[in-house]
Design a protein around this nucleic acid. Structure first.
Length: 201
DNA sequence: ATCTGGATTCACT
DNA sequence: GTGAATCCAGATG
């Protein structure tokens, strides 16, 4: 059920970004378990990706997390108030990562409602990377945590979306990356209401 | 030591 | 549609 370390060593981050759709992301904080089905991701293609913090092989205290061996979390604070959760993949020194952009609440919905101060029937509760992370209680303390531990992990519960239910489109919020902004490295589940906008092709 | 801007969201108009 | 909130990492002096 729980994805094992070998899964995260896959060097094809584009494949991984698609494969993670339908997997279930769990967190356990102070004994409270919450989980959601991953319905939207974005691939960040290591040193060759202008949109990546590790573009050009840049290594700093922050990006060092992405250079680690796959299977840990990379959590980054954006705009001073939003935590963005990424899955670090591939082998050591290959800084590939998958940004989790949206989840569909599955376990601990009441807890997520409290964290987000809105009812779970509202799509906005976990739509968009900042919201999804907040619903699951993820903050910077999760940075570099192992994804096979008991605080945060991902399970395969047998849910698999068909190819025609998965849509690939350009990524969001990275216009500064110029030509790389157009690469279809954002993946989401067609018609799922928790997918962040724009949710058309 | 100081400055700048971002892988965003929410509350208004 | 538009703007405000809000803070850390990275770059520069």
């Amino acid at each position: 059920m729980k994805l094992q370390p070998a899964y995260y060593l896959n060097e094809d981050v584009i494949f991984l970004a698609q494969d993670l759709l339908g997997k279930v992301l769990f967190t356990q904080i102070a004994g409270e378990v919450t989980a959601g089905i991953i319905v939207e991701t974005e691939a960040y293609f290591g040193v060759n990706d202008k949109a990546s913090h590790a573009y050009g092989g840049r290594r700093t205290a922050r990006t060092e997390t992405m250079y680690s061996e796959g299977g840990i979390a990379y959590v980054y604070l954006c705009y001073g108030m939003h935590h963005l959760f990424n899955v670090v993949s591939s082998v050591k020194d290959e800084p590939h990562a998958v940004l989790i952009r949206a989840i569909e609440p599955l376990v601990g919905k009441e807890i997520m409602e409290q964290r987000r101060n809105m009812v779970v029937t509202k799509a906005a509760i976990s739509s968009g990377p900042g919201s999804a992370a907040k619903a699951l209680g993820i903050d910077r303390s999760f940075n570099a945590k192992n994804l096979t531990g008991d605080e945060i992990w991902i399970e395969d519960q047998g849910l698999k979306y068909a190819d025609d239910e998965i849509i690939a489109s350009p990524r969001v919020g990275i216009a500064y990356a110029k030509e790389h902004a157009l690469l279809p490295w954002r993946f989401f589940v067609k018609g799922n209401k928790y997918v962040s906008k724009p949710n058309h092709v």
